[in-house]
């Protein structure tokens, strides 16, 4: 009985588990300002950097990602802001 309960607990834990970091699972994805089409996936519709709680990126890669996104923005490869008119 106890083991069943534990199983249930574990299951719930698993369900809440964080999304795997796309850069840790796939090392061939290179975080670089030159690779700005990849960076675009981690920028919102309005051009903001997506929080890692939403994108699932780990802390290490989020730091690099933020740096490279800012470099790409500086070179006008990706926008700082995207204005959306409704």
């Amino acid at each position: 009985m106890a083991s069943k309960r534990n199983q249930k607990k574990n299951k719930r834990k698993d369900h809440r588990r964080h999304k795997p970091c796309p850069f840790c699972t796939n090392p061939s994805l290179e975080i670089d300002y030159k690779n700005f089409d990849l960076l675009r996936r981690f920028v919102s519709e309005r051009g903001k950097i997506v929080a890692r709680r939403n994108s699932g990126v780990c802390a290490k890669h989020q730091r690099r990602l933020a740096k490279e996104i800012k470099r790409a923005r500086f070179l006008a490869l990706i926008p700082y802001v995207v204005y959306i008119y409704r």
Binding site: D37, R40, V43, S44, E45, V50, N54, S55, V82
Partner: peptide
């Protein structure tokens, strides 16, 4: 053109998230 496409795709992905 590419950037526009990417932007659209990005948007849908965000909404899903």
């Amino acid at each position: 053109e590419d950037s526009e496409e990417a932007g659209d795709a990005e948007g849908t992905a965000d909404e899903e998230k």
